[in-house]
Design a binder for these strands. Structure first.
Ligand SMILES: NC(=O)c1ccc[n+]([C@@H]2O[C@H](COP(=O)([O-])OP(=O)(O)OC[C@H]3O[C@@H](n4cnc5c(N)ncnc54)[C@H](O)[C@@H]3O)[C@@H](O)[C@H]2O)c1
Ligand SMILES: NC(=O)c1ccc[n+]([C@@H]2O[C@H](COP(=O)([O-])OP(=O)(O)OC[C@H]3O[C@@H](n4cnc5c(N)ncnc54)[C@H](O)[C@@H]3O)[C@@H](O)[C@H]2O)c1
Lengths: 207, 207
DNA sequence: TGGTGATTGCGCTCACATTCACAGACAACA
DNA sequence: TGTTGTCTGTGAATGTGAGCGCAATCACCA
């Protein structure tokens, strides 16, 4: 492991590579060349080699990258090997879908708790967790939960973010289409689905 | 409207500005300066000015940007003023949430049709549309639908994408965590929620 | 009508990211 | 063990966007 400064864009692509590597590994493959992985993922081979080169020597010339160690390395770099736990706030339409979503497990995530404000939902079981009362959300660090997922209506987003920060959350995945302010130490990633859709027409052919 | 090549990153940010502008307009404001808009959205003022400068003269020195014409302009650039129609394929956990999601309307989108393969779902009504049989999905262009939203299981994603392309779709929003191949004229935007979450731990403080 | 304060539009520079080309490393095999 | 073909790792070139500073511009008001 070298100590270069790793470009953000590279970090953004690492999960893509990880997914591809896991996919191929499950199919029984041992190794993969940058060219074949690139074809599979729709990127360029030299991009992959450059990205991997920031972290040290993963590959063997003439053969490619050994999948098992590649997966282990990327997991380590992204700190996914620790088995991150997340808390979901807001078990509505989207929150329920997220609780039923198996895709988080692939990266070692577990939604270990869920909270809502709706009395009718509190106490119910959804996808392996019991929905708790948001008013009783206290210290989460004690339970080993460092990630928060926000799926509440727009107008309560900031309030929920504050609650999560107080509870010791260090990273937030926000689905609400609103800018939230948090201490600088907390990393926020916002997914605004409508906004992503909104830039599609710009790129579409006119006719 | 000048003819510069507009940076992709600028296009990506335009919906953010649009949302902010609409938000302020609804509060009764007439104009906004780059500094105030920047504060609201958590970006830098010069970023906003630079972005807007690609498209011509939106603003008035000493005052700022006139909200109404700003909104109209961005809508025009992103081609949202046409009132884009979209088709949803896969009405499962995520698909149902999307149908119930009011956020698309803000950008002038309408989910005008939904399709599934599950006989128990076909014919049912969800969020204003009747779920159709995917086997009967034919020409969509005739109905004025140019956008496709894919929310089906991973292994059928490519197949559904092909169907949509055949039906005349020009842009796809894909929620399935798999790389799909389409003709170059079709623009694909993939939202992989788990992948976005996966790069959070890298940026989180260690302790 | 001319001065004032605020804010835009844009050129310039630097930092970062992508792309390419190729030397050198390795496996495979005769 | 020598030869061949493949693939990696990386330095250098090219492309792209962010950050900034300031002249030009406008509303406002005396
Ligand atoms: N539905 C979608 O497909 C979709 C897509 C993208 C983004 N979003 C965004 O995700 C958010 C949730 O969407 P939804 O469709 O699930 O809405 P929803 O109304 O179905 O669910 C919201 C849930 O949050 C709970 N809630 C409200 N205030 C709360 C609080 N202070 N603390 C804890 N829980 C609280 C409500 O009880 C409800 O269960 C919204 O901001 C929406 O814009 C939704
Ligand atoms: N649930 C989530 O929160 C979530 C989050 C991110 C991504 N995703 C992805 O979105 C996709 C759907 O997730 P989900 O949770 O809604 O799954 P789901 O199983 O609940 O729903 C899938 C739906 O697609 C339908 N379907 C299957 N094959 C089809 C076909 N060929 N044509 C039309 N319809 C078909 C099924 O009948 C079902 O209704 C998956 O790829 C998943 O990885 C889901």
């Amino acid at each position: 492991m070298r100590y270069h400064k790793i470009p953000d864009e590279t970090v953004r692509r690492l999960p893509v590579y990880l997914r591809g590597a896991m996919h191929l590994s499950q199919q029984g493959l041992e190794s993969i060349s940058s060219r074949h992985l690139a074809d599979l993922l729709g990127v360029k081979p030299w991009q992959i080699r450059k990205d991997f080169s920031y972290f040290g020597d993963f590959g063997t010339p003439g053969v490619g990258y050994h999948l098992e160690s590649l997966i282990k390395q990327i997991n380590k770099i992204l700190r996914l090997d620790a088995g991150q736990k997340a808390v979901l706030v807001g078990v509505g339409n989207l929150g329920s879908a997220l609780l039923a979503f198996p895709g988080f497990g692939m990266y070692g995530f577990e939604i270990a708790a869920a909270f809502d404000v709706d009395k009718r939902k509190i106490g119910r079981r959804r996808g392996g967790v019991v929905i708790g009362d948001i008013a009783k959300l206290r210290n989460l660090r004690r339970r080993g939960i460092c990630l928060g997922i926000i799926a509440v209506p727009e107008d309560t987003t900031q309030e929920v973010a504050d609650t999560l920060v107080d509870a010791g959350i260090k990273g937030i995945l926000n689905f609400s289409p609103r800018y939230i302010t948090v201490p600088k130490r907390v990393k926020v990633i916002t997914i605004d689905i409508a906004m992503d859709l909104a830039r599609l027409p710009y790129y579409m052919p006119l006719s």
